[in-house]
């Protein structure tokens, strides 16, 4: 993985407390993963190992669960998380092409984060801005009525 793990001692203590609170419960892995993702923002191998060892389940099982549910992320969010709406309205207005353009500019796939930690890319469901379709969000900013040609310039504003 490109992004080095930057977990702090405080985060580790928090996670240990979460594991201790759930240990021995049936089906503890998923709630612990949720809380771990709240603590770290994502679930890298270092965190999954702590959970596996702490709960006495295998790393393979933990990873299997993380990759099964789309809410769990293996990659950190970037400084500027980008979301491209793939809801019906945006999609028919060409948000698929916007997404492809972003992938090629940032050289990452959906769910990933750039090596410098600046941008992460997600495909989202409808965000309720259908009137502005196609739409992408960067952080809290909404960019609507997009064309593929505009994407590069918009991303540059955040670089």
């Amino acid at each position: 993985m490109a992004i080095p793990f930057k977990g702090t001692k405080e985060q580790e203590e928090q996670l240990k407390a979460v594991i201790a609170a759930h240990k021995g419960e049936k089906g503890a892995t998923i709630p612990v993963l949720h809380e771990a993702q709240d603590i770290y923002g994502y679930l890298p191998i270092e965190v999954q190992k702590m959970i596996a060892e702490g709960l006495g389940v295998s790393l393979a099982e933990v990873y299997g669960i993380v990759t099964f549910y789309t809410q769990f992320s293996l990659n950190p969010k970037g400084e500027h998380p980008i979301g491209v709406c793939l809801g019906t309205a945006c999609y028919v207005k060409g948000s698929g092409d916007i997404l492809e353009k972003l992938k090629s500019i940032l050289k990452i796939d959906v769910g990933e984060c750039t090596d410098d930690g600046k941008f992460s890319l997600d495909a989202t469901r409808c965000i309720g801005a259908c009137g502005l379709a196609p739409v992408m969000t960067i952080g809290d900013d909404v960019h609507g009525r997009l064309t593929v040609d505009q994407v590069d310039g918009i991303v540059k504003q955040y670089s």
Partner: peptide, 25 residues
């Protein structure tokens, strides 16, 4: 691997059409 041997280094990963058996990461 998981239940008889308790070695547990393989499991099912991903979902749907992408489901596969493999090791973590």
């Amino acid at each position: 691997c998981k239940n008889v041997q308790t070695v547990s280094v393989i499991d099912t990963m991903e979902r749907g059409f992408k489901t596969k058996v493999g090791s973590a990461f």
